[in-house]
Design a protein around this nucleic acid. Structure first.
Lengths: 223, 223
DNA sequence: CTACCAAATTTGTGATCACATTTTAGTAGC
DNA sequence: GCTACTAAAATGTGATCACAAATTTGGTAG
């Protein structure tokens, strides 16, 4: 687990240690460095991140409140395990919120933004062809959040981020076991719909992207 | 501010002090005991709640992460002020999520549940007639969350709770200044739609309830 | 009476400590 | 070889302390 918390945001500046720890652990979760069910200790993280337990406590509390981590009944912090019910709910919530975020972004997408999105989608497609899991996850995340951010959302975006965090551990587990080659790529549909400025088609494309993506996970395995 | 944190959950048991503080402050926000813009100090709360600053720090961090409180650029914790953009986003997110929650609850609503909802709505109507702000807020909250909880949601419910927390301070401010008599009551439509088992009408009623409720606020005043 | 500045106080952050509870190891018994 | 029990180590929670940064205060100059 030593390498798990290496930081990919080079030279990024944080106002407090707690903030640094928060983003470091968050990043590690998104990149699938933690397995579902794995227990995290405050002192262990503190030693790894070279700080006192105090900032770690607050960072973990924050991640727990976002449901990125879970508090066991013995007060131990763990990486949440997934259930079919939770996955269904996350799927429904993602559809509801990401459709809204995409719709909100639509008026801001000009030719320049559209090209930026096409470039990001090319990275996703390339990663899929090369079966590069790490690259796929990063590129897919960049693609979606770049689109959503164009509508300058604040509240909705943080809700969506919380939902992505919750599926990350399971998603990586499935990818590592079954690879990414069978994943559908609905981004083409989405880009066309955006170019057409069709709210209805955008919503449908997003819904399909999410439901097929999470559906393939729940079909493969649920522990 | 002394009386603000009196606790209405009698004898409720909490596993940790931090948890107690969290719910106490959360409750105070929902009941409108904090004004937008008001600054909160860790030591002040700790003294009021008779504990060390430590549990307060974690509780405030948690509430900040839920956007119920805000971190100023000087690291001070404040009650968030509302902007038209934020209100629009909250409104859109609430429509998206609460429609989903209501739809998810629909299959669970039998005759017994429907009567329970009617009883809760009667309390809302009574509070409106008596212009009892405190009662109205509590009853309205009970009505909505009782409905949503019938679908046994976990993730979606906590997202909705976060959104309600964010509008609570402004809502109370407006109520105290303008009263609650002019508020629309769309619960009748909603109850009829539920009884008819019409997903489409349920969604429409919820959307109207939210948009009219928050719309009346933004129309009245936004500081 | 107002604007400004420096001293004094207050505040948030991070570290360390104490303690009760939980987890882990090791051993004895079957 | 496996389970039940106990002792040791590790863990989360809450309290206290130190310190730098921010806020408030008090007094002075205009």
């Amino acid at each position: 687990m030593n390498m798990a918390l290496e930081f990919n945001h080079p030279q990024e500046e944080f106002r407090t240690t707690q903030e640094r720890v928060y983003f470091q652990v968050r990043d590690a979760i998104l990149r699938g460095k933690f397995l579902p069910g794995h227990a995290i200790t405050i002192r262990g993280l503190a030693a790894e991140l070279d700080c006192s337990p105090m900032p770690v406590r607050e960072a973990l509390r924050r991640l727990t409140s976002e449901r990125a981590l879970e508090l066991s009944d013995t007060r131990r912090v763990t990486v949440p395990t997934m259930t079919p019910e939770k996955l269904d709910e996350i799927c429904a919530a993602r559809v509801a919120l990401e459709c809204q975020a995409a719709e909100q972004a639509l008026p801001f997408v000009q030719e320049e933004e559209l090209q930026q999105l096409r470039a990001l989608d090319a990275r996703v497609t390339a990663a899929l062809e090369q079966k590069d899991i790490e690259q796929y996850v990063t590129a897919n995340l960049d693609f979606h959040f770049t689109l959503y951010r164009m509508g300058r959302p604040h509240i909705i975006l943080s809700l969506i981020e919380s939902l992505w965090l919750q599926t990350a551990p399971l998603q990586h587990l499935v990818f590592q076991r079954f690879g990414v080659q069978e994943l559908p790529d609905r981004h083409e549909d989405l880009l066309d719909a955006i170019a057409d400025r069709s709210v209805e088609r955008v919503r449908r494309a997003i819904r399909q992207d999410i439901e097929e993506g999470l559906g393939s996970i729940s079909a493969e395995e649920l522990l």
